[in-house]
């Protein structure tokens, strides 16, 4: 009962052009049926994400480890709450990141879990930059 061949084939990598996304904005694309948030973070958001004491987080991870170096302004995460799979809303919640309406999990500007029942950070999908304004997800 595992995914059939066509489902796997449809899950091949996709390319996304980043140039239309202005600073402070974000877009949602679908890959493998999952929503992927690509946000163009502001200076302030990046600073907020880096200022926290990593050891104090429920799922400790530095912001550096969650973005590609040289492209700090881009945060790419799978927009599926690690609790029970709802889609968190961007730019909401007390950490300026994501807020999940289902059971109230709050994520910060790096997509890390800060509050609520979710056990871990929003996962970062496999991706790389093919050029400065284009990424390939998958």
């Amino acid at each position: 009962m595992n995914p059939d061949a066509s489902t796997i084939a449809a899950g091949a990598p996709i390319e996304v052009d980043l140039s239309p996304i202005a600073e402070g904005q974000d877009i949602k694309v679908f890959w493998r049926g999952k929503p992927i948030y690509i946000s163009h973070r502001t200076k302030k958001q990046i600073e907020e994400a880096r200022a926290v004491n990593v050891a104090s987080l429920p799922d400790p991870q530095t912001d550096e480890a969650r973005v590609k170096s040289g492209h700090e302004q881009w945060l790419v995460v799978i927009g599926i709450c690690t609790h029970l799979g709802c889609i968190p809303i961007a730019h909401e919640g007390s950490y300026d990141g994501f807020f999940c309406p289902c059971h109230g999990s709050v994520y910060d500007t790096s997509g890390r879990i800060r509050q609520g029942p979710a056990p871990s950070n929003l996962p970062v999908p496999p991706y790389q930059f093919v050029s400065d304004t284009k990424i390939q997800i998958g």
Binding site: M1, P3, T7, G11, R32, G33, K34
Partner: peptide, 9 residues
């Protein structure tokens, strides 16, 4: 994944 037969519902 086995329940879904895919990567999502």
């Amino acid at each position: 994944t086995l329940l879904w037969g895919g990567y999502s519902v």
